[in-house]
Design a protein around this nucleic acid. Sequence first.
DNA 1: AATAATCCTGAACTTTCGTTCAGTATCTTA
DNA 2: TAAGATACTGAACGAAAGTTCAGGATTATT
Lengths: 205, 205
Amino acid sequence: MNKKQLQSEQTRKRIGDAARHLFVQKGYKATSIEEITAATGSSKGNIYYHFKSKEGLFLYLLDEWNRDWIEKWREKEHLYASAAEKMYGFAEQLVREDLNHPLTKAADEFFIGDDKTCEVEDRLAEMVAEHLAFNRMLIQEGIDSGEFRSGDPAGLAVVLEALVVGLSQMSRRSSLEQALAAYRLAIEVFLHGIAEPSAVSEPER
Amino acid sequence: MNKKQLQSEQTRKRIGDAARHLFVQKGYKATSIEEITAATGSSKGNIYYHFKSKEGLFLYLLDEWNRDWIEKWREKEHLYASAAEKMYGFAEQLVREDLNHPLTKAADEFFIGDDKTCEVEDRLAEMVAEHLAFNRMLIQEGIDSGEFRSGDPAGLAVVLEALVVGLSQMSRRSSLEQALAAYRLAIEVFLHGIAEPSAVSEPER
DNA sequence: AATAATCCTGAACTTTCGTTCAGTATCTTA
DNA sequence: TAAGATACTGAACGAAAGTTCAGGATTATT
């Protein structure tokens, strides 16, 4: 590899890392190009040399993130014996990986903001669908193995996603230990609920 | 009451209603004063005559919202016989009231944005604490009545809050029926979990 | 009726932020 | 080594948004 190419790749990574960190921490709009340059030492123009635009940079990060996340999961997945263990492993990776997925907060700004490009909109809808599909498969595995009661996997996938999205938002200002504890407790509740098994109650209507 | 005073109160309400609607729908930063004026027919200056600033307007809405929500809850609370029923009623009010609390999305922008005033920061931390206290009390009631297993009410309050926050975010683009179904399912899971009672599994470590 | 108080307008100011671009430095290639 | 390609700089531009203000319209007070 060329020295130029190497350099290019390095700064790209540098910018990407700094930008991701800021996006995750502060959201999309609240993070300015100025701040990214300050965090990298690069200049404004350099960002636009390596990335098409702010949107482009963000989209690139989303793709990269998703790829890495899935890859890491594939490496670990087989270590877990049961579906329940997988759920805890899933939560742990969510916390350890970055304490939250950029998609949860920043991408939501995209969806809602008026300035959304069609390309971005499509890509984001796709990613949410992927997330739900992932969750559904996780739950389906447990059902197939007899660990989980058979029910509505699609609906439960939404509930799980909501739990994850909410936790990432609530845990943004807490320590890793606190976050891990919260996630673990959440999965525990997701699996076993909080009600006494004896006290069966149904929703009204 | 004066004609002037009445007029003033009416426009205040008009501005507040329009602003709340936009904030809930689009988030804090994405909603401009311009848009609020367009939605009300009032002028820019008029908003600043009635409210100190955009932040002030938002803070006012948060307070108002919280008051109304609590009030409505107090009216309904006694109708529910069990703690479990209360949880479903709680979820239902969350959906029906506005499908999401401004605090969930817009307020999070406040917390994270750099431009936060000290006054605002304090007020918001207070409100989150109030929310968690509310949840904890709800859970504690169930524990006291023997419906819920005794555990970590504070931790469970965070899990419940996360569920609500996440659901509100996920349900922003779905119909009322879909949202209600998702919330109900979530509460069902929160109460009973998804695991087969026979298959007991613990978190690793 | 006249003066004061209140409500409201909208143009202009200021700041912030994404984006561009002419120019410089460094490296590759022929 | 000379010419071209690549990596980078930072000032400047333009659009958007929050805020202010001088003044007009409406209502209250004396």
